[in-house]
């Protein structure tokens, strides 16, 4: 029983970060129908900006604010600077340009900061929360849960309760109709990029303290795991992203404990194949979106 509790705690902590990052992917998909393959690199870049602020001021809350701002800024930059000028002939173009962005950003980060891991320490006590004699989660993990809950709730409210959210959904659903109804479609698209990229940056910043440290490649594996999570949940379902994120986190933890860490990426691949074969629209999506 105690082992199960421990694994559940570790799994949920890992899954929460997947969920947040997958949410960022979902946001951009809903706003622009683009799967942003540069999400990982953009988020890592924002996290490096926050890292500079953190070593300058020593304030983690400030770093959280900065990562949101930097993320939003990078999102605007990529959208206004590149994505807007894409030839729209094929949806593949957006993916290819995004891969170009990944290469430029990781290469530049490597040149500027080097390949070594930049540890980020957080000002939370390392004392765990105990149940009986066992440590379940550290206070930092609890903090991550709270932040993610706030973000998810905020996004949920934005899309369901505000006219801005409605406008964003409308412009993603049908640009022409939205435009005819007075929605400023271009601005909505930019807003989508800002929001998504800020959330992605936050996910990386929250993940780094539990890992070795910040590195130009910190986003690679996170991106693939989160992308899988987003597809499992349904690319246009925020709720799906969160639930699937937590689920995949727990699943990966169990797989790792039982069969070793090596099996992780294979489990992810099998899960992805399974979902794509059996329910390609994702577990939480209502529409048939991905069939050609």
């Amino acid at each position: 029983m105690s082992t199960v509790l421990l694994l559940l705690g570790a799994g949920l902590a890992r899954g929460a970060v997947f969920a947040l990052f997958a949410l960022a992917l979902v946001l951009i998909w809903r706003a622009t129908r683009i799967a942003n393959f540069a999400q990982g690199a953009m988020a890592v870049t924002a996290a490096y900006v926050a890292y500079l602020v953190l070593i300058g001021t020593g304030s983690f809350p400030l770093a959280v604010v900065v990562v949101l701002l930097a993320g939003a800024g990078i999102g605007v930059g990529v959208e206004r600077g590149l994505m807007r000028y894409l030839p729209t002939a094929s949806p593949l173009n957006a993916i290819i340009v995004a891969i170009g962005v990944v290469m430029v950003l990781t290469g530049l980060l490597g040149i500027l900061f080097g390949a070594d891991y930049k540890p980020i320490s957080v000002p939370f006590s390392r004392e765990p929360i105990t149940v009986g004699s066992l440590a379940i989660v550290s206070p930092y993990t609890l903090f991550v849960f709270v932040v993610i809950a706030v973000v998810v709730a905020g996004i949920g409210l934005l899309f369901t309760r505000t006219s801005l959210g409605l406008a964003m959904r409308a412009s993603a659903f049908d640009e022409e109709v939205a435009r005819l109804n007075g929605v400023r479609v271009v601005r909505m698209r930019t807003l989508g990029w800002m929001l998504s990229s800020a959330v992605g940056g936050l996910a990386v910043l929250l993940a780094v303290p539990t890992e070795l440290g910040l590195n130009p490649h910190s986003g690679d594996l996170l991106f693939v795991n989160a992308f899988t999570v987003a597809i499992i949940g349904g690319l246009d379902s925020p709720v799906g992203a969160v639930v699937a994120g937590l689920g995949v986190g727990v699943l990966l933890t169990i797989v790792t404990t039982l069969w070793g860490a090596t099996v992780g990426p294979i489990a992810i691949l099998l899960l992805l194949v399974l979902v794509l074969l059996l329910r390609p629209q994702g577990l939480f999506s209502l529409r048939k979106a991905r069939l050609a």
């Binding site: 105690s2 082992t3 421990l6 694994l7 570790a10 799994g11 902590a13 890992r14 539990t210 890992e211 070795l212 594996l221 990966l252 933890t253 169990i254 790792t256 404990t257 070793g260 860490a261 090596t262 992780g264 990426p265």
Partner: peptide, 20 residues
């Protein structure tokens, strides 16, 4: 005996298993 993979920087599952 627990293993880790260099590509995955989360070893909490392994540590938890060793503790258990």
């Amino acid at each position: 005996v627990q293993t880790y993979s260099v590509s995955n920087q989360d070893v909490s599952a392994q540590i938890v298993a060793m503790q258990a």
